[in-house]
Structures are given as structure tokens and as C-alpha cells.
């Protein structure tokens, strides 16, 4: 019974070529991120010099003074572009995935509780706060928060987090409200079902009802939304990096690399502007197509929702 259902879902997933392409791309990017240090030909901070009479940073397939060949050339500071892109992909992916993951877990807890205690003071306060946070479109809130916290890391009691955590926190703040709203929405109809009433009558403690009975039955919508948010998270991370609010030098990040390509304008080398932007686009494309695919598999009726991108 279960395998038959799985096969239906699987066939639906495999049926759309675009989705399969997205899945393959995501897999490739994950491989790049995980094995980045093994794949990258050089260290991301190592600076090279050009051979005499050549302009190193400008050229694809350039050879350095010490004989290394740089496949995609180097950036303006003479660092290998390919290695920076690989490490940058790693940074961007780690930040986006961890922020979406954290936001989803938070949203599941908050959403199920507000849904279960619908109409209570707790619900009222949380939902009002979420309304207020929702008035800021995605990346804006993240920009404001990173700006307020600064890029040096946040001090929580005795611990100072590393700078990347600031971005993760800011993104968590931007994603959690929407995810919470979705989770609450799918919790409310479930909370009035007979099995919940039965659990209440049995005298089950609230945390058990919510954690063991309610949450497992309400996850579909929030998981769908979370996967579509991965693309948005990559976009926001790159956007922050592009604005100069990303990780500090020499840590590479895709948006930051793209911002620095404006230094190539005078050299008129198009591929240097093209490659980092294309990487970001491919990453966002892969995630959003995959997210759409998963949504089509789990919820074929779905059409369009306001807070998507």
C-alpha cells in the first residue's frame, strides 16, 4: 500500500523533466559544497602574480608567474576565480540551508502552538508580531537586521557568534513569519479533529498532543513552502553579500564575488561578469524548480500564493 503510493508520487516527480533537471543540479551543487576543499584547485585566499608582461586578473586560462594555470582567471586581487566560486557556493549554501532549516523548525513549533491555542493571548501576540514582520518584504528585513547587528557577530551573553551567524539570524527572522503562518493554517483544522479530542480526553499532556499527534499530521504544507524558500534564501544571501553585508574578506560568497566583478568593467571581459551571476541564477533556478516539483508531487492542486518569492 505504502510502496504503491510512493510509486505514484515518484512517477509524478520523474514525469516533469524540468524538475529532474533541478534535482540533478541541486545534487551537483551539494557535491560541490561538501567536497569544496577537495575540488578547489587552490586556496581561496592565495594570491597569484602574473607572468611578466601579462594582465593576470583579466584572462581566462591564465598562467601565473609561478606556473599555475587558472581555469577561470583570477579576481582583481589575483585570487583563483574557480576556487573562490567553489568556496563561495559552499558559503552561500551553508548560510541559506541552515537559515531555512532553523526557520522551519521554529515555525513548526510556533505554528503548531499558536494553531492549537488559537484565539489565546499567546496566539494573538505572536500573530500580531508576525503581521508586523511580514510588512517588510524578504531581503529588506534581513538588510535592516544585519545593519543593526553589524557584521562582526552577535554577542549573546558570554558567546560571540561568528559573522556568518548574523546573516543566518537575519534570514531566520525573515522566513519564520511566513512559515509559521502556513504551519498555523494547517494546524487549525486538525486541532478540532476527533483524534485530538480523544487525546485530550485521555488526559495526555499538551506537549505530547502537540508534538506526537498534531505536528506529524500538519507538516506537508510547511515542508513544501520551506523547499521553495531555499531558492529565495540563496537569492537573499547573495543579495546581502552583493550589498557588502555578507561574510568578511577573505571569505568568498557568491554575491560578494558578483559585486566585485564590477572591477572588470574596464577590461571589457564579459565572462567575469557572467560567471558568478550565472552561478547564482543556476542555484536559485535549481532550488525553485525542485521546490515547485516537490509541491506538484505533494499538492497537485496548488496554484499561486502571494508570499512566494
Amino acid at each position: 500500500m505504502k510502496t504503491a503510493r510512493f510509486r505514484i508520487l515518484w512517477n509524478r516527480f520523474i514525469g516533469d523533466k524540468l524538475v529532474v533537471l533541478g534535482a540533478v543540479l541541486v545534487f551537483l551543487f551539494l557535491v560541490i559544497a561538501v567536497f569544496g576543499p577537495q575540488l578547489a584547485p587552490y586556496d581561496f585566499a592565495q594570491q597569484f602574480r602574473a607572468a611578466a608582461g601579462e594582465l593576470l586578473p583579466m584572462d581566462v586560462m591564465s598562467t601565473t608567474a609561478t606556473g599555475e594555470r587558472l581555469l577561470l582567471g583570477s579576481d582583481a586581487l589575483g585570487r583563483d576565480m574557480l576556487s573562490r566560486l567553489i568556496y563561495g557556493t559552499r558559503t552561500t549554501l551553508v548560510i541559506s540551508v541552515s537559515s531555512v532549516l532553523t526557520a522551519t523548525i521554529l515555525a513548526i513549533v510556533l505554528g503548531s502552538l499558536t494553531g492549537y491555542f488559537q484565539g489565546s493571548l499567546f496566539d494573538e501576540i505572536v500573530m500580531r508580531l508576525i503581521d508586523a514582520l511580514l510588512t517588510f518584504p524578504g531581503i529588506l528585513l534581513a538588510v535592516i537586521l544585519v545593519a543593526a547587528w553589524g557584521t562582526q557577530g552577535i554577542q549573546i551573553g558570554p558567546i560571540t557568534t561568528n559573522p556568518e551567524m548574523t546573516i543566518v539570524f537575519a534570514l531566520v527572522f525573515t522566513f519564520t513569519p511566513r512559515l509559521t503562518r502556513t504551519m498555523r493554517g494547517s494546524t487549525i483544522p486538525q486541532a478540532h479533529r476527533a483524534y485530538i479530542k480523544a487525546a485530550q480526553l485521555m488526559g495526555m499532556p499538551v506537549w505530547r498532543i502537540v508534538a506526537l499527534e498534531l505536528i506529524p499530521n500538519c507538516l506537508t504544507a510547511v515542508i513544501i513552502q520551506a523547499t521553495t524558500y531555499l531558492g529565495l534564501a540563496v537569492f537573499s544571501t547573495a543579495g546581502l553579500g552583493f550589498l557588502g553585508l555578507g561574510p568578511a574578506e577573505p571569505q568568498p560568497e557568491l554575491g560578494k564575488i558578483l559585486a566585485r566583478t564590477q572591477e572588470y568593467f574596464l577590461s571589457r571581459q564579459f565572462w567575469h561578469i557572467f560567471i558568478p551571476g550565472f552561478t547564482i541564477s543556476l542555484l536559485v533556478f535549481a532550488f525553485s524548480v525542485l521546490g515547485d516539483g516537490i509541491r506538484n508531487v505533494l499538492d497537485p492542486e496548488y496554484r499561486f500564493e502571494e508570499a512566494d518569492l
Partner: peptide, 14 residues
């Protein structure tokens, strides 16, 4: 689909 994926700041740079 391209709209989903192409960051507007990249388009601006191009």
C-alpha cells in the same frame, strides 16, 4: 522560470 532565478542585480550589472 527565468524570473525566479535571475537576480535583478545581475541583470542590472549586465
Amino acid at each position: 522560470i527565468a524570473t525566479y532565478s535571475i537576480p535583478d542585480f545581475w541583470l542590472a550589472i549586465i
